[in-house]
């Protein structure tokens, strides 16, 4: 297949995941709970972001045994994370047959200058971003799906909102620029001008745009979809809460019916305790995962 057709097939899977929730899981039981709750995919992990944050140390690709055990019990797509720039971890994940690779800032970066060349893989990649320039650099490297980073493992939505707003207002700004302004804008954004031209015309990213990092409640999920997220990744928010199955179902409903506020009120009742959460202002700069990658 040509690179264009391969990309069409990769973006095709991202399109199928729209309007859904992708849940972080660390074992087969959690994966089943996620699928039963209506998740469109699961992210197979050894530790969820909140645990990585607590335990510290170098965070790496998960044990393949965990990934295989999760692949066995669900019919929905299984994703897994590799470290930024760690193309060998990505090659191993591709060999395991994962359906999507997340080149993720949640793991400790392996390369501080270069991300993985995602065109050289058959498996599609999702990458995080904080603004339009970062989104476009990842798309230029072959990402088939973009997610705003937020601040993983905090249960705090503020960074997810900041990053989604930055991407959306960046897109709106491009649609208003004159053709003669595009090269200079590309230089400022650090992104290829061809992608800018495409967005100026279409008014949207050339790949789907999801949200991640900080969703803990149904209202958080509704907020992100209304701000422009086409699906929502939920990491620690579900399995760090007191009633994961109930909360997972509620978050799925809030994405499907993001503007049905009577329904969101009903499903938000009696969900038990959400994950405790962290105020971003109390995090040291080096503790912020979103700053990893460029």
């Amino acid at each position: 297949m040509s690179i264009e057709k391969e990309l069409q097939v990769k973006i095709g899977l991202a399109e199928m995941l729209k309007g859904g929730v992708i849940m972080d899981v660390t074992n087969a039981d959690q994966a089943k709970i996620a699928q039963d709750a209506g998740a469109v995919a699961v992210m197979a992990l050894e530790r969820i972001p909140a645990q990585i944050r607590q335990q510290g140390g170098v965070a790496r690709m998960s044990d393949p045994k965990i990934i295989r055990s999760i692949q066995k019990v669900v019919t929905i797509p299984v994703m897994a994370k590799c470290r930024i720039g760690h193309f060998a971890e990505a090659q191993v994940l591709q060999a395991l047959g994962v359906d999507f690779i997340d080149e993720s800032e949640v793991l400790t970066p392996a390369d501080e200058e270069y991300h993985v060349d995602k065109f050289s893989f058959k498996v599609p990649f999702v990458c995080g971003c904080r603004d339009l320039g970062e989104a476009l650099r990842r798309i230029a490297e072959g990402a088939a799906l973009i997610r705003t980073k937020g601040e993983a493992g905090t249960g705090n939505i503020v960074e997810a909102v900041r990053h989604m707003r930055a991407v959306q207002s960046g897109i709106r700004r491009l649609t208003l620029l004159g053709n003669e302004e595009l090269v200079t804008e590309g230089k400022k954004l650090g992104a290829p001008v061809e992608l800018l031209r495409q967005i100026k015309k279409s008014g949207k990213l050339p790949v789907p745009n999801f949200s991640a990092g900080g969703v803990a409640t149904p209202a958080d999920a509704s907020l992100m979809v209304q701000l422009g997220a086409e699906s929502v990744f939920v990491g620690s928010g579900i399995f760090m809460s007191s009633d994961p199955a109930k909360r997972a179902k509620a978050i799925v409903s809030a994405v499907t019916h993001c503007q049905d506020f009577d329904l969101i009120a009903r499903i938000s009742e009696d969900l038990g305790d959400p994950m405790p959460g962290i105020d971003i202002a109390t995090l040291k700069e080096e503790e912020k995962m979103a700053a990893r990658g460029w």
Binding site: M16, G19, G20, I76, S253
Partner: peptide, 15 residues
């Protein structure tokens, strides 16, 4: 449409 059949089936029942 296309999507995840397990998810769609569950949502159709739920709603």
């Amino acid at each position: 449409p296309g999507g995840e059949s397990t998810t769609l089936a569950k949502l159709l029942h739920k709603h």
